[in-house]
């Protein structure tokens, strides 16, 4: 009986609440997708993909808590460390479109 199984009320546990929160973060990611696709400039897209990556880290962490699977944090860590690589790669690429790397 962990914290996740504690009842919040009306049959919902803390884990269910965390799953709803995770779904909300996914909805926010869908909203951010608009900027990644439409984004008039490449800087918008770089920022959008960075936000999406951070968002995914949060979603994975919440999923790990909600489903009582601490190993999910390992995947969140991979994204936290490699999302940065994606950001610097795209941002350096946007300067003269790969003319400068």
């Amino acid at each position: 009986m962990s914290v996740v199984d504690a009842t919040l009320g009306a049959g919902y546990t803390v884990g269910d609440f965390l799953l709803i929160v995770a779904a909300g973060f996914v909805v926010l990611a869908i909203g951010m997708l608009y900027r990644a696709v439409k984004g008039p400039t490449m800087q918008d897209r770089v920022l959008a993909v960075n936000v999406l990556g951070t968002n995914t880290v949060v979603i994975l962490a919440i999923l790990g808590a909600a489903l009582s699977e601490p190993t999910f944090l390992d995947i969140a860590l991979v994204y936290a460390l490699l999302n940065f690589l994606m950001a610097i790669a795209i941002s350096k690429f946007t300067v003269e479109r790969g003319g400068v790397l």
Binding site: A36, G39, A48, L52, M86, I90, R97
Partner: peptide, 9 residues
């Protein structure tokens, strides 16, 4: 480039 970025997403 936009396609590559969205593919990352």
């Amino acid at each position: 480039l936009a396609a590559v970025i969205v593919f990352g997403a």
